[in-house]
């Protein structure tokens, strides 16, 4: 007896063809994204590679393209990170701990939660407007490094809160129970049991949020940081510039040389982003091994 005799060959062939067609479609869909990204990177590399000289990092921007650099922008970006990272870590993780561990799970908490999730998707320029009103005007910080960093902190805070909450939520309940059953208080449980387990996930979120912030331009343009800065900030109330702003400045000039400078600035930014995302991946892998 042939157990295959009742197979419907035509129907099977049709199914196989559908499968094959969709396979092709998915490959094409993926390729479009990858090709676009490659084209972008190659284009920028062609434009900018010749300007990737020591001058770029050691010189200030100037009116002449030759010998023009982005020292002030690079340092500005790093200073901004140095302020933003601890401030957003403290407030972001603090809020996440409160919402996950302390807040009563009532209607009010749900409302806050909804708000935070929504804020994570608000266009960045809106944060610029808020920063302008709050830090530049009300607190009279002017368009200073601190005003810029705080505006950016507001921008990344919802992202950090949401990702930290996820990391905290991922810590098994049994680990909290073990701690409480030994007579730990809430804070002891959070600080000694929950946070050590959640920290790699929290840090990953913080790094990814930072890498979003250093590429942002709109909020800084909004608070008036779109200026020509040919010096390093001496304190947090000095004016400053950052890499994307410097790129924007160069792009707005008509000469070709400045376009090349802009491209090299983008390369530096991309490398920085890549490094940050890479370290986030390293952290995540280490975390997965430990748990």
């Amino acid at each position: 007896m042939n157990i295959f005799q009742d197979a419907n060959r035509k129907q099977i062939a049709d199914r196989r063809r559908t499968d094959w067609l969709l396979h092709i479609l998915f490959v094409v869909a993926t390729s479009i994204g990858v090709i676009a990204l490659c084209a972008l990177i190659i284009d920028i590399l062609i434009d900018g590679i010749s300007r990737l000289q020591p001058d770029l990092f050691t010189n200030f921007p100037s009116r002449k393209a030759d010998g023009s650099g982005m020292k002030s922008a690079l340092v500005g970006t790093i200073y901004m990170l140095l302020i933003m990272a601890p401030v957003s870590f403290i407030f972001g993780v603090g809020a996440a701990i409160y919402l996950e561990e302390y807040a009563k799970k009532g209607r009010f908490t749900r409302l806050i939660q909804l708000n935070i999730s929504t804020l994570a998707g608000v266009p960045s320029i809106v944060y610029g407007i808020l920063g302008l009103a709050l830090f530049v005007r009300l607190l009279a910080l002017d368009r200073s490094l601190i005003a810029g960093a705080l505006t950016m902190t507001l921008l990344v805070l919802p992202i950090i809160i949401v990702s930290a909450q996820e990391a905290i939520r991922a810590v098994p309940k049994s680990r909290r129970d073990a701690s409480f059953a030994l007579g730990a208080t809430k804070w002891q449980t959070v600080s000694r049991s929950v946070m050590p387990s959640a920290l790699p996930g929290v840090l990953t979120g913080v790094i990814l949020a930072m890498s979003r912030a250093i590429g942002e331009t709109a909020p800084l343009v909004m608070i008036g940081a779109l200026t020509y800065v040919a010096f390093l900030p001496n304190g947090i109330t000095d004016s400053f510039t950052v890499i994307p702003i410097q790129v924007y400045n160069w792009l707005s000039k008509p000469q070709l040389e400045f376009k090349e400078l802009a491209a090299s600035g983008i390369i530096v930014l991309l490398v920085l982003l890549l490094l940050m995302n890479f370290s986030a991946i390293l952290l995540r892998n280490k975390y997965q091994k430990n748990v």
């Binding site: 098994p172 049994s174 680990r175 129970d177 073990a178 059953a181 050590p196 387990s197 748990v291």
Partner: peptide, 12 residues
């Protein structure tokens, strides 16, 4: 003191 159904050591 309490011991649970699933062994639940800390990742330490």
């Amino acid at each position: 003191g309490m011991v649970f159904q699933q062994p639940n050591p800390f990742p330490k």
